[in-house]
Structure formats: C-alpha cells, structure tokens
Simulated assay, not measured.
Amino acid sequence: MDFKGKTVIVTGGSRGIGAAISYMFAANGANVMVDYLPVEKDIEGLKQLEQEVHNIGGVVDSFGGDVASPEEMDQLVAKTLERFGGLDILVNSAGFTRPATVESMTPDLWKSGIEVNLSGAFYITQAASRHMISQGSGKIIFIGSAGSITGGGGSVAYSAAKAGINGMVRALSKELAPKGINVNAVLPALIETDLLRDKEPDVEKRNKYIQRIPIGRFGTPEDVAYMVLFLASEYAGFISGQNIIVDGGSTYK
C-alpha cells in the first residue's frame, strides 16, 4: 500500500498500537503527524518512534496536545495543514483504561474515561472533518475495542466509551460518506501493549488469557496497524460504517 503524498494524523501515536500505526504509515510513504500527551511515557515513546522513522527515511512531526481539549485539537489540525499542506487520514488511537469496579468508580474517573476515550475522539474528528469535507475526501478510522461488545477492558467507563465509538462510527458514516469520507473502526482485543499489562501486571495470570484466543497468541500492535492501513487505502473505498474486530477469534468464542 502506497501512501506517498498523503498526510495522516495519529492521536495517541507515540506508544503501543498508535506507535505501530504511525511507523507503518511512515514506512509506506505518508507524512505523519503524531499527537501525544506531554507526559514522560509518551515523550519517551515519541523519541523512539522518531528515531525509527528517521532511520527508514520517513517523515514524522509531532504535536503535544490533549484530545480532551477541543481547542488543542483545532490547533493540531491547523499545525498539520501548515506543516504538510493537507490532511487525508485521521486515526483516533488515543485512549486509556484504569481498572475499577462499579463500587470504586469515582465521578472523576468516570468523567475522564468518557472524555478521553469518547469525547476526545469526537473533538479531533470534528476538527479534521471540516477540512476533509471542504476537499471532498478523507478516511477516518477509530481504534475502538472488542470490550464494547464483551464488556471487557477493565472498567465500565472504558467499555461504555468504546461502545459509544461504535455508534459514532455508524452515525458519522451516514453523514460523511456522501461527502467522500469513509468512517470505520478497528476493535482490538488482547493486544500485547501497556494497556494489557496495566490491566493484568502478573505475567502468569496474563498469559492465561491466551487460552481464550483461538489463534493461540496475543495480538501485536502491528496486527491492528495492518487493518488500519487497509481501511485507509484505496482498496477499502467501498467500506464505511463498519466496526471490524481484530481479536484472534476471542470475542465470539
């Protein structure tokens, strides 16, 4: 898949699944704008990603912005247009989960879970879609979660927010597909990332999850990135409004 001349924004693009997506787009010729949260883990991840992209002669720039801020997401789009002269693809990968039972879920934890995982995805989508509508084309891809179906993910706030993504994808597709913009989501499950390690720090307990995966292994960030690139490519021109599960067969086992 060739993305030369294309520009992509990847939110949460400095670590985990987001970093794999950012790298793979850069490796296939795209101009990549990585949005990251200016905290230590994200900054370290960004440094590593930038080095890897530079090693292959790719093009990457970055913006330290909070997806939960509509103003900062407007600034992210503005910087992308100024830096690269266009915007063709948006990947909403920013998100987090903090394990909590319904009894221990505080109002602040609920609000942050919804604001980052759901509202933040809307804010950057709204900002990006204004440009895409004006040019009559674009691809918008959300990183959802199979937890929106199974109830997994570590907390009710996370599952609820990711279920909201599924509905947003269907609604946005009806609105934006007639304007030349494809909207889809990829729903990963049991991908070996910090999110999975935070949910279950114990290695032995975590490895028992593999018993739930018919394919017999954890997924990798690259497994998700391959699907994202396909949906962003010309080969997926007739696909819109879909929530596509990438889970090794575990969701409906």
Rank of each mutant, 00 (worst) to 15 (best):
D2Q: 13
G5M: 11
G5P: 06
K6P: 06
V8D: 15
G12R: 03
G16D: 12
Y23E: 13
A27T: 02
N28F: 11
N31I: 07
Y36D: 09
Y36M: 03
L37H: 13
P38H: 10
V39L: 14
E40A: 13
D42K: 02
D42A: 08
K47G: 03
Q48G: 09
E52K: 15
I56K: 09
F63A: 14
G65M: 02
G65T: 01
D66K: 04
P70G: 02
E71Y: 04
E72I: 01
T80K: 04
L81E: 12
L81N: 08
L81H: 08
E82L: 09
R83A: 12
R83N: 07
R83V: 10
R83I: 06
G85H: 05
L87Q: 03
D88Y: 01
A94I: 04
A94V: 11
T97L: 01
R98C: 01
V102S: 11
S104K: 14
T106P: 01
T106F: 00
S112P: 01
G113S: 05
I114P: 04
E115F: 00
V116N: 08
V116C: 10
F122C: 07
F122H: 01
S129L: 10
R130C: 00
M132T: 07
I133F: 07
I133A: 09
S134G: 09
S134E: 15
Q135S: 05
Q135C: 12
I140Y: 01
I141G: 09
F142T: 01
S148G: 15
S155V: 06
Y158P: 09
S159R: 03
S159Y: 06
A161E: 05
K162L: 03
I165D: 10
A171M: 09
L176Y: 13
L176N: 11
P178W: 08
K179H: 09
N184R: 03
K199L: 15
P201Y: 07
E204S: 14
R206A: 05
Y209P: 00
Q211S: 14
Q211D: 12
P214F: 02
G216N: 00
G219C: 13
P221K: 10
V224F: 05
V228R: 08
L229V: 06
E234Q: 13
F238T: 13
Q242I: 03
I245A: 03
V246A: 05
V246T: 07
D247L: 02
G248P: 05
T251V: 05
